[in-house]
């Protein structure tokens, strides 16, 4: 039953991806500038420019261009970057894991801290933890991320000098052998502890920057869902059984509070998939965000398309994962 549901959801991804690709393709055409000019370079003669335009198929009507793109895509070919002349698939294989690693670290911080703080705030309602968190969450949601990034860089890299200011690895560290492309994991698998620690230290500031808003959001939802759960009859039953307050909170109230929390966590992942551009640039991260930024400025349509499709696919899978998680969190939820 569940298998069929998943199969249907996977099948439904096809029209979504198709729609997104059409939209992205047409929107790319609206970017000011001439992709042929961007590819040929500033010094190209009009003849050279036309030759490039013809070679890249940019002289064709837009629907034809799109048709050609999709035709190649169905054969697994994401095309070639206009600016770097590298295969887009190849470049994505380098940039996507970097973003994935940052996203992963961010989500670990968001989930662990958000839920912990939310539970603590709810169980000590009106106490100092609760009030401190309230203040923090206003700051967390209200403060612009670029400002937060600079602040953290200033304090931890500039003044305290305890964390690296930017990049994924120190200059003297050799990247671990590529397995997943996630430096910390690859280093761990290769048993290179020093490399792993170095990669981990580089993750702290960008992940912290990206997670502050999420921690506030997840914490607030967890707090209110916990407060709601703690008023339910089953909590009184749990207390009547003589369970410790800790068991009442963590075993009886928290699992019931996780449904809205999971929804917010899923939305947070979706937001981050598109929201890392600024932070990757500030921290010289060299991930999907940096790649997208360059692609857009160079009118590199295959790059823009590739990133859009990869991000959308990731988003669709996160969504499916959240929906499947609901059934684990609440046995009353079943999909047909």
């Amino acid at each position: 039953m569940m298998g069929r549901y998943v199969a249907r959801r996977l099948f439904l991804m096809i029209p979504v991806l198709l729609g997104v690709s059409i939209l992205a393709f047409y929107v790319s055409q609206l970017l000011p500038g001439d992709p042929a000019r961007a590819a040929a370079g500033r010094l190209a003669t009009p003849e050279q420019l036309e030759a490039v335009r013809e070679r890249l198929g940019l002289d064709q009507p837009i629907p034809v261009q799109y048709g050609l793109y999709i035709g190649r895509l169905l054969q697994g070919d994401l095309g070639t970057s206009l600016s770097s002349k590298q295969e887009v698939a190849q470049e994505l294989r380098i940039f996507f894991p970097a973003t994935l690693e940052l996203l992963f670290a961010t989500m670990v911080l968001t989930v662990v801290l958000g839920i912990t703080i939310g539970v603590r705030a709810a169980t000590s309602r009106g106490g100092w933890v609760d009030r401190a968190f309230l203040g923090f969450s206003y700051l967390g949601v209200g403060m612009p991320v670029f400002f937060l990034a600079l602040l953290l860089q200033l304090v931890f890299a500039g003044w305290l000098r305890v964390l690296p200011i930017a990049g994924r690895l120190s200059l003297e560290t050799v990247p671990p052998p590529v397995l997943t492309g996630l430096y910390t994991f690859d280093a761990l698998f290769a048993g290179q502890w020093a490399t792993m620690m170095d990669a981990g230290r580089h993750l702290v500031l960008p992940a912290l920057t990206l997670s502050i808003a999420g921690i506030s959001e997840v914490g607030r939802i967890t707090r209110s869902a916990m407060l709601n759960a703690l008023e339910q009859d089953y909590v009184r039953t749990a207390r009547a059984k003589g369970l410790s307050e800790r068991a009442v909170w963590l075993r009886h109230a928290l699992p019931n509070a996780m449904l809205p929390t999971t929804t917010v966590i899923g939305l947070q992942v979706a937001f981050l998939l598109g929201g890392t551009v600024l932070i990757e640039n500030i921290f010289s991260w060299g991930g999907l965000g940096t790649y997208a930024w360059k692609g857009i400025f160079r009118l590199d349509i295959p790059v823009i398309m590739g990133i859009t499709l990869v991000s959308t696919t990731a988003y669709l899978f996160v969504n499916l994962g959240v929906d499947l998680l609901y059934t684990k969190l609440d046995p009353r939820i079943r999909y047909e």
């Binding site: 339910q232 009859d233 089953y234 009184r236 039953t237 749990a238 207390r239 009547a240 059984k241 003589g242 369970l243 075993r251 009886h252 699992p255 019931n256 969190l329 609440d330 046995p331 009353r332």
Partner: peptide
């Protein structure tokens, strides 16, 4: 003492039992 020397049975077990356990 609650649950060991004094046991409880509540009304409306659908809401008095935890739905996720």
């Amino acid at each position: 003492i609650r649950g060991s020397r004094i046991g409880f049975v509540f009304q409306d077990p659908l809401s008095a039992l935890n739905p996720v356990l």
